[in-house]
């Protein structure tokens, strides 16, 4: 059996440190996801009315966010703001802002799509039964929209978690950075640490994302 450098994981507090690094990344995505869900729902409901100002805003916003790699957006936020406004944003704050901007636009689009995907005949037949507009929204539109929306939102959060791995490249000390430190510190004792540590991170991300995407898939099937 070749030396896989796995023993490093159990040395000292290494494993806990890695988990701590993962938490830094997860925390960024969870905060950004929270902001995105709240703002996205507001934006999306507003934009679901055709030819409204908010629908135009959403489309332009989405267009800008979609065309640029997230890495570039992070870069713009991290370096650009320093230059333009002389803010000295920490990498973590820059990341939360970028992911919230991204997530709000995506979430808004999902909400808009979910609400407008419900055929007009549904609204009409509910009105024909004598329901008032608010009741139509509460009992007919929302339940159907939510079923579509929840799996898609879970997928968005999963994507966000994966994307937070990028923050290491703007200097945030998260799991990949911690990994480099551990590998560096154990260079002599375990020369193959890089294999074991990066394998562990691979597995950790998988374990963080897989349950979410599985849940999304199950819900999607369940509600179809």
């Amino acid at each position: 059996m070749p030396d896989l450098g796995l023993e490093v994981l159990w040395k000292g507090k290494n494993f806990v440190r890695l988990l701590g690094g993962l938490w830094v990344a997860l925390r960024i995505s969870l905060i950004a996801a929270g902001i995105s869900v709240v703002l996205g729902i507001l934006l999306g409901v507003a934009a679901s009315r055709k030819r409204s100002v908010s629908s135009v805003v959403l489309r332009v916003w989405l267009g800008i966010i979609h065309i640029m790699p997230q890495m570039v957006l992070l870069f713009l936020m991290y370096f650009g703001t320093t230059r333009l406004f002389s803010w000295n944003l920490s990498g973590e704050v820059a990341a939360v802002i970028v992911f919230s901007l991204w997530g709000t636009a995506e979430m808004g689009d999902l909400v808009r799509g979910a609400v407008s995907s419900i055929p007009a005949i549904q609204r009409e037949s509910a009105e024909a039964l004598g329901l008032k507009p608010a009741q139509v929204y509460r009992w007919i539109i929302l339940p159907q929209a939510v079923r579509r929306l929840i799996p898609q939102s879970i997928n968005l959060i999963t994507r966000m978690i994966k994307t937070t791995s990028l923050v290491t490249l703007i200097g945030v000390v998260e799991i990949l950075k911690v990994a480099q430190q551990i590998i560096e510190a154990n260079r002599k004792a375990s020369p193959n640490a890089a294999f074991g540590v990066y394998l562990a991170i691979f597995v950790m991300y998988y374990l963080a994302c897989r349950p979410l995407s599985l849940a999304a898939k199950k819900l999607e099937k369940h509600w179809r």
Partner: peptide, 19 residues
């Protein structure tokens, strides 16, 4: 689909040479 590209790249570039 459930792991970030960056992590995949680190594993390939820094991890795999060790084996």
């Amino acid at each position: 689909r459930n792991t970030p590209l960056l992590v995949q790249l680190f594993f390939i570039y820094y991890g795999l040479p060790k084996i």
